[in-house]
């Protein structure tokens, strides 16, 4: 666990870079978190996915799998992999400040 400063706020990240406490996250941290993942420009479509991840986490206590993202976020699986090349569920969860989704699919 490490403490990092994102958007002038101290946050705790685990060894893989996921938020330990999702309540420490705020939307103004997104551009900086995205840059850490190699995403220079956060587009409207990125936002759509990030907000969807956040809402799913708040409703269900866990982030959605890629299949669920593709079916219900309004962004197709092809586009998801273009937006988040390192793996949509994982990368978007990191940027959305929620734990790594544990689904196998």
């Amino acid at each position: 666990m490490t403490t990092t400063t994102i958007a002038n706020t101290d946050v705790e990240l685990n060894d893989e870079g996921f938020f330990v406490d999702p309540s420490q996250w705020s939307e103004d941290m997104v551009p900086e978190l995205a840059r850490l993942e190699g995403i220079e420009e956060v587009t409207d479509q990125h936002w759509q996915v990030i907000r969807f991840m956040r809402a799913e986490y708040q409703a269900k206590g866990t982030g959605p799998t890629v299949r669920v993202l593709g079916k219900t976020s309004g962004v197709s699986i092809k586009e998801l992999y273009q937006l988040f090349p390192k793996g949509p569920a994982k990368e978007a969860a990191k940027i959305a400040g929620i734990p790594k989704p544990r689904g196998c699919i």
């Binding site: 890629v66 992999y81 090349p85 390192k86 793996g87 949509p88 569920a89 994982k90 990368e91 196998c104 699919i105």
Partner: peptide, 11 residues
């Protein structure tokens, strides 16, 4: 199939 999908999901 699960291993291939999982590999892509991990980047």
């Amino acid at each position: 199939l699960i291993m291939a999908n999982g590999a892509r999901a991990e980047g």
